[in-house]
C-alpha cells in the first residue's frame, strides 16, 4: 500500500525568477526544519542543462503513537537531484530521504515550467512508502502524507518570500547583474549604464526617487544587503 499526492500551483513571476528563488529557498523562516544544505555535485552539461545534487539535513517529527526506538533520531538526510533546462524553460527536481528508508521513504518530484502567459507552473508529486510492517505500515504512510500536505503550503510561502526579496532587490539602483556577467564585482559605472539603458529618460528621476525611498524604508537596507551578499563574493 503506497500513498500518493499531487498538486500544482501557479507563480505570477517569470520562470527564471522562480527558478532562482527555488535554488535560493533555504534558509527561509518557513523552513526552519532545514538544518543544512550542501551542494555535493554540480555539472553544466554539453546540452546546456545544469545538473545539481544537494544533500540536506531536515528535522522531522514522529507521531505520538510511533513505537519507542523506531528511529534513533528524528533528523533525516535528503538527496535532492535537479536538472535545469534553460532552453526548454523547465526544472525537474526529485528528492528522497536516504536514511530511515525502512520506516518511511518520501519520494517527491517537482517540476517548474514556463507558462505561456509569462507565469510559472509548479507541479508537485509525492509517494509515501513504508516497509516497517508490524501493522503500522498503512498508518505511517498516512501520517507522512498528512504531514506533507500540511507542509506544502509552508514550502510555497518560503519560495514566495524569496521571490518578494528578489523583486525588491531588483528595484534597487545597483542591479544584481551589474555588467553583463552577473556576479562580477558590482561596478557602479556598469550599473548606471544599465539603468540609463533600461529606463526612459523622462521617468528616471521618479524611479531614482522611488529607489531612494525603498532604500530608506524600514528593514530595506539589511534585507537588500543580505540578498545582494548572496550574489557576490564576500570580502
Amino acid at each position: 500500500m503506497v500513498k500518493f499526492f499531487a498538486q500544482s500551483h501557479v507563480y505570477d513571476d517569470p520562470w527564471a525568477t522562480v527558478t532562482l528563488a527555488f535554488f535560493l529557498r533555504y534558509p527561509n523562516p518557513y523552513a526552519s526544519h532545514v538544518v543544512s544544505c550542501d551542494v555535493i555535485s554540480r555539472t553544466p552539461t554539453p546540452y546546456g542543462t545544469l545538473l545539481t545534487q544537494r544533500l540536506l539535513l531536515k528535522r522531522g517529527s514522529l507521531p505520538k503513537w510511533a513505537p519507542q526506538g523506531i528511529m534513533t533520531r528524528t533528523e533525516s538526510w535528503i538527496l535532492e537531484e535537479s536538472e535545469v533546462d534553460v532552453e526548454g524553460r523547465i526544472v525537474r527536481c526529485k528528492t528522497s530521504n536516504i536514511d530511515h528508508v525502512k520506516v518511511m521513504q518520501v519520494h517527491e518530484s517537482t517540476v517548474l515550467k514556463e507558462d505561456q502567459n509569462g507565469k510559472t507552473v509548479q507541479t508537485t508529486e509525492a509517494r509515501f512508502v513504508s516497509n516497517f510492517g508490524w501493522g503500522l505500515t498503512k498508518r505511517l504512510e498516512k501520517f507522512a502524507q498528512t504531514k506533507f500536505v500540511s507542509n506544502i503550503e509552508k514550502s510555497r510561502e518560503g519560495i514566495s518570500l524569496i521571490l518578494r526579496l528578489l523583486r525588491e532587490s531588483r528595484l534597487q539602483p545597483l542591479p544584481i547583474a551589474a555588467d553583463g556577467y552577473p556576479g562580477a564585482t558590482l561596478n557602479p559605472n556598469a550599473a548606471i549604464h544599465i539603468a540609463s539603458a533600461s529606463t526612459p529618460e523622462n521617468t528616471r528621476p521618479d524611479s531614482e526617487e522611488k529607489n531612494a525611498r525603498l532604500r530608506s524604508g524600514p528593514g530595506m537596507p539589511s534585507r537588500w544587503q543580505q540578498i545582494r551578499s548572496w550574489f557576490t563574493r564576500p570580502g
Partner: peptide, 19 residues
C-alpha cells in the same frame, strides 16, 4: 560554501536569462 554559493548564484542568474 557561502563563497561558492555567492559565485554560483551570480553565474546562475545570468545562465537563466531568457534565451
Amino acid at each position: 560554501k557561502h563563497a561558492y554559493d555567492a559565485c554560483f548564484n551570480a553565474w546562475f542568474e545570468g545562465y537563466l536569462e531568457p534565451v
